[in-house]
Computed example of a mutant assay.
Amino acid sequence: MAHDHAHDHKPPADLGPTFLWAVGLNTAYVIVEATAGFLTGSLALLADAAHNLTDVAGLLIAWGAAVLAKRAGSASYTFGFGRATILAAMLNAIAILIGVVVVVWQAAQRFQTVVEVPGPAILLVALVGIGVNTGSALLFMASKKDDLNAKGAYLHMAADAAVSGAVVLAAAGILLTGWQWLDPAVAIAVSVLIAWTAWGLLRDSLRLELDGVPEAIDRQAVADWLGAQPGVSNVHDLHIWALSTTRTALAVHLVWDGADADAFLDHVTDKLAQHFAIIHATVQLEQAPCERAGACLVE
C-alpha cells in the first residue's frame, strides 16, 4: 500500500520593504564613495565602492528572485520558481569574484606607480560607510533566522561594515605615517576577504543547484528519525533537496505496518517541518519489505 502526501507551510515574511531600504541606502553610498574615490584617487575607496555596487546588484537580484519565487507553479514549472533564488545567489557570487580580479590587478599596478591620496577624505567617506552598512545589516537581523536570503544579506552587509573599517584603518595609517602603499595594500586585503565570502556563496549555491542536501539539514538525523517512528521497519529512497533558498523538499519510501495511514502521514510531515524545516514532504508507505536487494535502509 502506497500513499503520497505533500505538506506545505505559510510562505516566508515579505522582505520587500527591507530590500527597498537596503538598496536605497547602499545605492546612495555607492554614488558618494565612487565620486570620492575618483576625486581623491583612492583605490581603496574605489575597490569598496565596486564591491558595494555588486552588493546593490545582489540585493536587487535576490529581491527579484524572492518575488518570482512567490509565483504559483505552472504546467511547465510544477514546483514554482523558487529555484530562481538559488540562481540569483550563484550569479551574485560570480559577479563578485570577477570584480575582485579586476581590483587586485589594479592594486598591483598601483604598487609600481605610487599615487598620493588624501587620508582625511578617505577617512570621512569610510566612516559614513560603516554607518550605512551597519544600518543595512540591522534591517535584516530580525528575518535572518528564518530566511536564507535575509541571512545572506545580513552577513554581506555586516562584512561590508568590517571592510569599511579596514579602509578607515588605511586612511588613519596614511595620515600618521604617510605610507601611500597602505591604500593598494588594503584594497588587496579587502578583495581577498570578499573573494573568500563569495567563494562560500558560490559553493553553497552550486550545492543547492545540483540538488544537494542543504547544509543546514543533517540527512542522517532525518533518516534516523524516520526509522524510529512507530510501525516503520525500513527507510529507503530518501531524497532531500532545495526548492529555493528558503524551502526544502523531501521524498521517501517507508516500509510501515500500521492502521491509520492519514494520521501517520500528518504526524510525520508536521514533525519534519518543525524539527528539520522541511516544509514540502512526499511520503510513500509500503506494507511489504523491499524487493530490490539492498534497497531498504534504516539510516
Rank of each mutant, 00 (worst) to 15 (best):
A2S: 11
A6W: 11
A13P: 02
D14W: 06
L15T: 13
L15M: 15
L20I: 07
A22K: 00
V23G: 02
G24A: 12
A28P: 04
I31H: 01
A34H: 00
T35H: 00
F38L: 15
T40W: 01
D48V: 04
A49T: 04
V56M: 08
L68C: 03
R71Y: 14
T78N: 10
T78W: 03
F81N: 00
G82A: 06
M90N: 10
M90H: 12
N92G: 10
A95K: 07
A95L: 15
V102G: 04
W105Q: 12
W105S: 12
A108L: 15
Q112F: 15
I122M: 15
M141T: 09
S143F: 12
D147T: 04
K151I: 02
K151Q: 14
A153K: 13
H156E: 13
A161R: 00
V167S: 07
V168L: 08
A170H: 10
G178V: 07
W179R: 14
W181H: 00
A185R: 02
V186T: 12
A187D: 09
W196Y: 14
W199A: 11
D204C: 05
L208S: 03
L210T: 14
D218T: 02
Q220N: 12
Q220C: 11
Q220D: 15
A223S: 14
L238Y: 07
I240T: 07
L243T: 03
L243V: 05
R247V: 12
V252N: 05
H253A: 02
A261P: 08
D262A: 13
F264K: 04
F264R: 08
F264G: 06
L265I: 05
L265W: 05
H267E: 09
T269G: 01
H275E: 10
A277I: 00
I279W: 06
L285T: 12
A288K: 09
C290E: 06
L297N: 08
